[in-house]
Amino acid sequence: MDIIIRQETEKDCRLSEKVVEKAFENEEHSDHREQFLVAKLRKSDVFIPELSLIAEINKKIVGHSLMTKLIIKDGEKEYESLALAPVSVLPEYQNKGIGTGLIEESLKLAEEMGFKSVIVLGHDRYYPRFGFKPANTWGIKAPFDVPDESFMALELEKGSLDNIKGTVAYCKEFFE
């Protein structure tokens, strides 16, 4: 099975939104609106086209991942980071390494682009394999009530979160 991971193009958008919708269709901890979030984020000022990726098998889009800018606020101080959300794979293609490929490529590209860290709200048994740790390790908090073990951060540059603490400020599209 040859998996091609590439930057999403404008003509991929409708299909990738369908992938996102189907990926979260039966997810227990979902509002089942992730596809609308993706569409809104694409039009926002936090969107980074190079970090909107799709996975294809035989020219069929089977996965999508998105990273957008966010801010960690500590009083008047602000630190730039990235949000990894959402990561989506069609149910029939899950557990085949597609999500892993999307995340690894996203992290590599983000690092190459000079970003220093990434924040994710996700499965505490999945994301640590990429190096994510509970964000509270660095004194970073979620802007809403979530289990500490599910709200994680990753340093793309060693030590980049050492002197950073505060609350993550997601863009308004995450709350609409």
Rank of each mutant, 00 (worst) to 15 (best):
L66N: 05
S117I: 05
I140G: 03
K158R: 11
K141A: 13
N26W: 09
G99C: 05
S65D: 09
E176L: 13
A85M: 04
S16N: 12
R42Y: 07
K77S: 15
L156C: 03
T68M: 04
E56Y: 01
S81W: 05
E105P: 06
E104D: 12
L41Y: 02
I164M: 07
K158W: 06
F36E: 12
P134K: 08
I72G: 02
K96N: 10
K133H: 12
A39S: 15
F36I: 14
P49R: 14
I48V: 11
E50H: 11
L107N: 03
Q94E: 11
N163H: 15
F151P: 01
V20P: 00
F132G: 00
C171K: 14
S30R: 03
I4G: 06
Y93D: 02
T68R: 02
K141M: 12
Y127E: 00
T68H: 03
L154M: 05
G101Y: 04
G97Y: 04
D31K: 09
G131K: 04
K141H: 13
E80Q: 15
Q7C: 12
R33W: 02
S160E: 09
S160M: 07
S117T: 06
P49Y: 11
G97R: 02
G131C: 02
F175P: 05
G131H: 06
G63H: 01
D31T: 12
S117Q: 05
I164F: 05
F151V: 08
L84W: 03
A142F: 11
F174Q: 10
I48N: 01
H64E: 05
C171L: 12
E56F: 01
E149K: 15
V146N: 04
V168P: 00
V120T: 07
E34D: 04
R129K: 15
L156G: 00
T9R: 13
E17D: 14
L156Y: 03
A85W: 00
Y93L: 03
E8I: 01
D31S: 12
G97W: 07
F47W: 13
H64Y: 10
A142G: 10
R125Y: 14
D124E: 15
E111T: 13
E34N: 03
Y126F: 10
K73S: 11
K69Q: 11
E80K: 13
